[in-house]
Design a binder for these strands. Structure first.
Lengths: 333, 333
DNA sequence: CAATCGCATGAAAGCGCTTACATCACGGAA
DNA sequence: TTCCGTGATGTAAGCGCTTTCATGCGATTG
């Protein structure tokens, strides 16, 4: 049916070994020979069989990425950057998502490894130790992103540091009655670190949250939870675990007739596109998603090549836009 | 190193053929035998070698999706839905993006096929006929999405009908001095159909656009182009080719001190999340991204199984929110 | 000038799985 | 009792490539 190495070898008048070398390590072949082979390849319209190649060489050139969801721009952008940073033609990206369900994440990881993934990109550190063991046994290299830690190779950032900087800003404005609108923290170390990081800083100052809501990712969920949080009239600031929740909160505020930031301060986390589209534009924590994707790709390649790569911690940064202000009481003073 | 079928067969006291049957077609094996085999598999921690399997069975269970970019929520959501609709465990999704560069798209398609993709999901119809021929020769089934047409199997919608409905709405409001803010149309039939569809409707009414801007996808690009379009003071409505451009336009309008929709009407296309976050919320054309992803997955599987699937045309719908109103002159009247 | 080395190439052995075909045991029909 | 059909299982032949090792040649060295 399709041309094989044998056909090419026959037409070019060389052995299959030489054909293979032309494709995988051209320098090990005399230019003249190479030319003949390449010509044969072209006239036969030959392209190597993937399965055979994978079987014989024990690598597929496929890298797997397992993310909670692509619906969150945070991951979509990160994956996009990651894919662009993969050396053209050498690797392809297998993507799977698990909708924040740990069981499904495990299945997806196993599925990608079963599909021959040479390496994996995973999100965060939180997962059953058995998974890490399994990966170790199978000798599948991996890089974790969107978080940081000592236990595993990562290219990420410090969620605690990010939220702490933001809460500090809110405190410095004079807010004392603060609530937090967090993503679901179960099995999600990013969300958990943001919530706990904020909580710890408050505790340090002898304060605590007026209220805390934990809701699934989503605009509408953010809006609803915000309304509930604001039932407590004392609250003057709502710190959100991510931009989508914050955008939802902002929309709810509009609908409730609350002025932002005059009546209430709302902050986000991630700095995705929507953060600069809301009105007013969202004060948030910028995360270098693009850079992170690139660094993760570089690190993973190191590991795949058997080198011992260095984890990378990227800085986050407060982006002060229009949704923060001193609490109403302070303005009265 | 790792357990192979032979190891499993030996431990279970059966032949490799039986092991293979247990994995691929369990019903053809006596329950008692199957149990023994499964046990052996578990104790050996066996998992089949992907390359060998692909080589012997001539299919990989990998499906490729080639999209312009994952940064556009439109594609991220579609891909997400597509992936979820793939039968769990049977298929995995290889994703590649090409940044709207036709040459790169071709490379990505070839790369995915070289990686053994059993089928492809592509965006739109516009591409070098040679690519379609190549795909036909290689017998790789594919489904096109985000558009419709007779030439190829698709699961998509009618971009012309969508924009026509929107322009009709704008015309009905009384606008006559309309400009269009379009995405780049080169090699992009979705953008082109939207622009040309709108143009054709205007022509039908004896009108034409006051101005047309074609810019690359992006918030900032939309904002800048909007400002230029509005240099023409007669313009009372700007129809945008997608929501991101519209959101950019809206932001520019705010900054220019224009009231929306009192001073100017702005419309979008796609109805992604940001459309309901802007202030005011964006009037746009809803596209059933999720449903489209699902239908595309179903259709592609039919084709992979050798059946002749039926293309699917999904409806679009105007979502009338807050960025449209009669032109100022009409209100004066 | 002989011994040695380096390099391009060829021969052939797998890589681990699927599957066509052969085999075997069993039960019912003749 | 004999024969044949049926279904479960075994045998073994590849699938198309990579890679190790062997080969042979010309060049380098003492």
């Amino acid at each position: 049916m399709h041309a094989t190495v044998d056909d090419v070898a026959a037409l070019a008048g060389v052995s299959t070994a030489t054909v293979s070398r032309c494709l995988n390590d051209p320098d090990r072949v005399l230019p003249a020979t190479r030319k003949k082979v390449m010509e044969a390849i072209r006239t036969l319209n030959y392209s190597p069989n993937f399965g055979a190649r994978a079987l014989a060489s024990r690598r597929t050139g496929i890298i797997g990425a397992v993310v909670p969801t692509l619906e969150n721009a945070v991951f979509a952008h990160g994956i996009d950057a990651f894919e662009h940073a993969l050396p053209e033609g050498k690797f392809a990206l297998l993507v799977a998502s698990y909708g924040y369900d740990p069981q499904r994440e495990r299945e997806q990881i196993e599925a990608l490894v079963a599909r021959g993934a040479d390496g994996l990109l995973l999100v965060g550190f939180d997962r059953d130790p058995a998974i890490y063991e399994w990966l170790a046994i199978r000798k599948v290299p991996y890089v974790l992103a969107w978080a940081c830690g000592d236990a595993h190779p990562y290219a990420g950032f410090d969620n605690v540091a990010g939220i702490v900087a933001m809460v500090r800003l809110v405190l410095d404005l004079g807010h004392r009655n603060i609530s937090m609108l967090s993503g679901l923290t179960a099995g999600n170390d990013r969300a958990r670190n943001r919530l706990e990081g904020a909580r710890a800083l408050l505790a340090e100052k002898g304060l605590s949250f007026r209220g805390v809501a934990e809701v699934p990712y989503g605009l509408e969920n953010g809006a609803k939870a915000f309304a509930e949080l604001m039932a407590d009239r004392a609250v003057t600031a709502v710190v959100c675990g991510n931009d989508v929740l914050a955008a939802g909160a902002l929309r709810a505020a509009h609908r409730m007739g609350l002025r932002v930031p005059e009546d209430v301060t709302i902050t986000g986390f991630d700095d995705i596109d929507i953060a600069s589209i809301t009105f007013p534009e969202l004060t948030t924590v910028r995360v270098p998603h693009k850079r992170m994707g690139q660094e993760a790709a570089a690190l993973l390649q190191q590991l795949i090549d058997g080198k011992s790569g260095q984890s990378i911690l990227l800085p986050t940064k407060i982006v002060a836009r229009g949704t923060h202000a001193p609490p109403p009481s302070c303005r009265n003073a």
